[in-house]
Amino acid sequence: MRIGIMIGEVRGPATADTLRQQATGADSLWTAQALGWDALTALTVAAPHAPRATLGTAVVPVRQRHPLTLAGQALSVQAATGNRLTLGVGSGIGVMVGGMFGLPVDRPVAFMREYLAALLPLLHGEPVAAGGEFLTVRGTVAVPGTIPPPVLLAALGPAMLRLAGTAADGAITWLTGARTLESHVVPTVLAAAAGRPTPRMVAGLPVCVTTDVADARSRLADRFGMAAQVPEYRRVLDHEGATGPQDVALIGDEETVARQINRLEETGITEFVAAPSGTETEQHHTTAFLHHLSKQNQAS
């Protein structure tokens, strides 16, 4: 199992220099799309400071990005970074897509199926001419010197997990604990992907290496607590028996966090994406420890 590092706003306010500093020394870099930095742009800014790292978005919401637009953006990142990108996409959190953009949020699986049917050939430089139920796509995208990035799908519910197995290169989760990954996420995607290449399974969680567990849990509850009110995350938190994100985050001393990461590997995921959390000192300590574990895993 690979260990990746999340950089950018999920860890707090981030300048361009912050992105570069957070990227240094990483073997695998990921960014999320929040309310500020564009995830793909943030990766491009950070990439030169981790020249051997793979890059990934976790994830780009697609309701507000036409497939032609996203394909051009993704292939531009490929050209700028030496073809290191994994493109993680998702249908977006309904309350944000509807409330902020005024876009429809119904039938997310049907929408995503139609979206992927256009996006994947566009990433391969193939022309698309489709007028579907949700999208009209007519055109092609070409960026010389690029290869199509793998596409992973943000998925939590069973139908979206099956789509990740049948139409994408794998699945990405956020705030989903080990019990749910093992009993629900991984087996659903693997079953759907039968007969296809083995899917990638990427799971993201906050991590804080600290000796003050109670205080770290309280701060994580404050920072990510709104996720517990979002239906998409509420379902997987309930499945885990968790009150909120602080109950699935990895928190504790180095030995405890290493044990929790080993437990995640047992679930069958192929990559763990850690979002270092806490004070600046805690984040530095957490990141250094995660780099150490990543190098250990690569050597074994």
Rank of each mutant, 00 (worst) to 15 (best):
Q22W: 08
G25I: 04
L163R: 07
P108Q: 08
T15N: 03
G195K: 08
G94S: 14
G165W: 02
A47V: 11
V207W: 09
R263A: 15
R196H: 13
T166G: 13
V186Y: 04
M160Y: 01
A80Y: 00
H66W: 03
T173N: 09
T44G: 15
P127Q: 12
C208A: 15
P276F: 08
G132I: 12
T267R: 13
V209D: 06
M226P: 09
Q22D: 14
G278M: 03
V141G: 10
G72R: 02
T54W: 13
M1H: 11
T180L: 11
L156E: 05
Q260A: 14
L103P: 06
A168C: 02
I93F: 12
A216G: 01
S91P: 13
G132W: 10
W30I: 00
P108S: 08
S294N: 11
D17Q: 14
T57N: 00
L264K: 08
A155Y: 06
A221R: 13
A167D: 14
A80Q: 14
L43H: 07
A214N: 03
E9C: 12
R162S: 13
V141Q: 03
F111P: 06
G12V: 10
W174M: 13
L120K: 12
T180P: 12
A274M: 10
T146S: 01
P61Q: 07
A167V: 06
V77N: 01
V62F: 03
P121Y: 00
T176K: 09
G36H: 08
Q21K: 14
L85A: 10
S300H: 15
A159F: 00
F272T: 08
A23Q: 08
A288Y: 05
A23T: 12
A46I: 13
Q73H: 07
Y115C: 07
L190I: 09
I5E: 07
T18F: 01
M96V: 14
A178E: 15
V62K: 01
L103T: 02
V257Q: 08
A26D: 12
E282Y: 05
V60W: 01
E182T: 12
N83E: 07
R11Q: 14
R65D: 04
I251Q: 00
M112Q: 13
P158K: 02
A228K: 06
V273P: 02
R179Q: 14
R263M: 10
R52Q: 14
T188P: 04
